[in-house]
Amino acid sequence: MVARPTPMSPAFFDTLPVGRDPVAIRRRVEAVERLLEGLYVIPGINRRVGLDAIVGLVPVVGDLLAGAMGMWLVWEARNLGMSRMALFGMTARVGFDTVLGMVPFVGDAADFFYRSNTRNLKRIKKHLDRHYPATVTVTR
């Protein structure tokens, strides 16, 4: 079995496909979501956190940066031709996460529990599975 590169290794970015086809988009959004929401495991509680929560510790600027990274998923969804209502819902999730993240302490807890990028990834996968069934990947 070939080991997959970790999100922080330089080889990770070499594995991301460059293209506009649905398979490449699926792989990119899954990789970015993993980077934003599941980069590290907190020992003891086995809860995954990513750049969204880590960067969100920096007041205001960190939350704006995390929101911009989350909006990239919405941009990819737009490129897939998702409906305006779906894009609006995804944008609202990122906006809610960003605004809530600016509140001290409450925002840090929200980044830990409310994972807007994971929710948006589920929405994108649902769209891909319905409109591009050849992109479905089997996971264990």
Score class of each variant (00 low, 15 high):
Val60His: 05
Arg27Pro: 00
Asp52Trp: 01
Glu30Cys: 14
Glu76Asn: 05
Gly89Gln: 09
Asp63Gln: 09
Val32Met: 14
Arg115Phe: 01
Met71Asp: 04
Asp14His: 13
Arg20Pro: 00
Gly70Ala: 02
Leu16Lys: 11
Val58His: 02
Arg28Met: 13
Gly50Ile: 01
Val49His: 07
Met85Tyr: 05
Ile25Tyr: 08
Asp97Leu: 06
Glu37Leu: 07
Phe13Gly: 05
Val61Gln: 04
Pro10Lys: 09
Gly95Asn: 04
Val41Trp: 11
Leu51Thr: 00
Met102Ile: 13
Val60Ser: 06
Leu87Cys: 07
Ala11Cys: 07
Arg93Tyr: 00
Val55Asn: 01
Ile25Thr: 15
Leu39Lys: 05
Thr91Arg: 02
Gly89Leu: 08
Val99Lys: 02
Leu64Met: 08
Val29Lys: 08
Ala92Cys: 05
Leu100Arg: 03
Ile42Asp: 10
Leu64Arg: 01
Val49Gln: 09
Phe96Lys: 03
Leu100Thr: 10
Ala66Leu: 03
Val94Asp: 05
Phe13Tyr: 14
Phe112Val: 07
Phe105Leu: 15
Thr91Met: 02
Ala92Asp: 05
Asp108Leu: 12
Gly62Trp: 04
Ala53Ser: 11
Thr91Asp: 00
Asp14Asn: 13
Ile42Val: 15
Leu36Lys: 12
Ala24Tyr: 09
Glu37Trp: 06
Arg26Ile: 11
Gly70Lys: 00
Gly95Phe: 05
Val29Ala: 13
Leu80Tyr: 04
Thr6Tyr: 13
Leu35Asn: 07
Gly89Ser: 09
Ala92Glu: 07
Pro59Gly: 06
